[in-house]
Design a protein around this nucleic acid. Structure first.
Lengths: 143, 143
DNA sequence: AGGTAATAGTTGATTTTGTAACTAACAACC
DNA sequence: GGTTGTTAGTTACAAAATCAACTATTACCT
């Protein structure tokens, strides 16, 4: 057909990464979706606040590379569900300090534990050294 | 805060995969978006037909794990742009044999070459053995 | 053959995302 | 101290993804 047809989508890195990401997210997604009615961005926001404590929407967006409108909507939903509280930063009243409520923290801990087990299960069939390589390259690819 | 706070999102595999996938897709996305006004699904459909020849929508969906409605709409757009033709399978008139036109094939070849270079560039900073490990584990994670 | 179930693909309604424009608060500069 | 430029976050509108229901055709089953 053409000269370079040894190129296969199955080995194209962005494609592989997408397929692996999707496949490996499905089962975990069910947890935050079914148990808490959350979307991925909401879970990520929840996670950041649970893990790192009080933060602003901007800080979360930067760390997780989520666009500010997405963060804004996720924060809104989490606030509606009383998973977090917002209070104006007195030094800069444009931004808000976000903090998990007890309910939010409980959800975080629950999901974090699930995530931890899930992660272990994902790599359980692999050689430990290979997994280390995998994570190292993924971290670099993520920039 | 809680007992298992050594767990970090940065090392949660589904998260890492998503971040790496997104980051590594951006630059390539620009090509099929700017040059051909395509969406990711369209590029994938185009790719499958270019690489593997005549196929049905169903086959593409199965191989690439894309939902049939997404495939259907992608095929529709590619047909509108005269990148592919559809003809009823005479053995089973529910399905259609899809085939790239000359224009579609040209676009495929162009993008395939870009993809190939892009892939090489992505891994250029890594050790070849590590890259082999990466692809091997990704293939298994993708299921 | 006739009826029921399954399949390929499409369409429509709803949800989610992306983009751009907006408000409110701060900063900097003259 | 007022004008101009930034920044945090929200809102409105357009694009795209998801999910359910639909059509047309084929398969199965008795």
């Amino acid at each position: 057909m053409s000269e370079k047809d040894d190129f296969d989508l199955q080995y194209f890195l962005p494609y592989m990464l997408n397929q692996a990401a999707e496949e490996s997210s499905i089962a975990f997604q069910r947890h935050y979706k079914n148990r808490y009615g959350m979307l991925r961005t909401e879970w990520r926001v929840l996670f950041h606040l649970g893990r790192y404590g009080e933060m602003t929407a901007k800080e979360i967006g930067e760390r997780a590379r989520i666009h500010k409108t997405k963060v804004s909507r996720a924060v809104q939903k989490l606030a509606d569900r009383r998973f977090l509280t917002r209070k104006k930063d007195e030094n800069d009243r444009r931004s808000e300090r976000l903090e998990l409520t007890q309910a939010g923290l409980a959800a975080y801990r629950d999901l974090r534990d699930v995530a931890q087990e899930y992660d272990a299960k994902l790599v359980s069939g692999f050689d430990a050294e290979d997994v280390a390589t995998l994570r190292r390259l993924l971290a670099r690819l993520a920039g």
